[in-house]
């Protein structure tokens, strides 16, 4: 190829491009962008639209004698339901750090995985947990309590029977 020096052209007046080069580049870019879009489309598939998990809303009868400050954990649920003079409330037992199930102690909740410690109202006292334990929405009718594990309400929200 021989190179002949040409006067520098401005950005707005570029070198003319041969038709074949243009068509070749255009088809190359068309193929590349098709593949990129196809890849994005394929990535859309594993992002589930409907989550295969059972309903998180459940109804439970509180035991007759539930001492103040001691949560009742319905079997198979990760929630502690409390009852005191101001009403009924439910605190999530899922650690906000990495999802382990916390255990209730005399003074609050301990996480077995990385040592986070929470007060009885869920606030973080110690450890790596970035947020307090969630409070769930409860509805009370008589002695039965409905808890929605997917909802969250501000800490301190208690519901009177």
């Amino acid at each position: 190829m021989t190179v002949t020096p040409t006067p520098a052209r401005s950005r707005l007046d570029p070198e003319p491009m041969p038709r074949r080069d243009f068509l070749g580049l255009a088809s190359l870019w068309a193929a590349a962008s098709t593949m990129v879009f196809a890849a994005i489309g394929m990535l859309r598939l594993p992002k589930a639209a409907v989550l295969a998990s059972p309903s998180k809303k459940f109804k439970v009868n509180l035991p007759e004698s539930l001492p103040q400050g001691e949560g009742f954990v319905p079997p198979g649920r990760s929630v502690a339901v409390f009852k005191d003079k101001e009403g009924v409330y439910a605190v999530s037992l899922i650690c906000t750090h990495l999802g382990c199930i916390v255990k209730q102690t005399q003074t609050g909740f301990d996480c077995p995985c990385h040592g986070s410690r929470f007060a009885l109202d869920g606030t973080v006292i110690k450890g790596p947990a970035p947020a307090p334990l969630k409070w769930h929405k409860v509805a009370v009718s008589g002695s039965s309590v409905t808890v929605d594990e997917e909802s969250s309400v501000p800490a301190g929200t208690k519901v009177q029977a």
Binding site: K47, L51, A52, S53
Partner: peptide, 12 residues
């Protein structure tokens, strides 16, 4: 969500 296909570790 992409890793688990669900909100928790299960069949997905």
């Amino acid at each position: 969500l992409l890793l688990l296909g669900s909100s928790e570790v299960g069949e997905e």
